[in-house]
């Protein structure tokens, strides 16, 4: 299955069903991530219950240095 991850068509790794699965698999630092799911903010406690579907848009954001 393919999703659009940060603007790129990306193959969802096997076994990743929810946002939570993906974040864990990718070993991203959960504490600082901001996830936008189909243009809506997905709060952290909702990650385990959001089941990814074909062509879903996922934006994984974080705070960086900026002026």
């Amino acid at each position: 299955m393919f999703i659009i991850l940060n603007g790129k068509i990306t193959k969802l790794p096997n076994g990743c069903i929810t946002i939570n699965d993906l974040v864990k698999r990718k070993k991203w630092n959960q504490g600082s991530l901001i996830v936008e799911y189909n243009n809506q903010l997905a709060k952290k406690d909702a990650w385990p219950s959001i089941i990814l579907k074909e062509n879903d848009r996922l934006e994984i954001l974080k705070f960086v240095g900026g002026g």
């Binding site: 991850l5 603007g7 990306t10 600082s32 934006e59 994984i60 705070f63």
Partner: peptide, 16 residues
Amino acid sequence: TVALRRVDLDFEEENI
């Protein structure tokens, strides 16, 4: 001030 950016999917980045 800080900025909001897409995570670089290939590298582990620090949280500012």
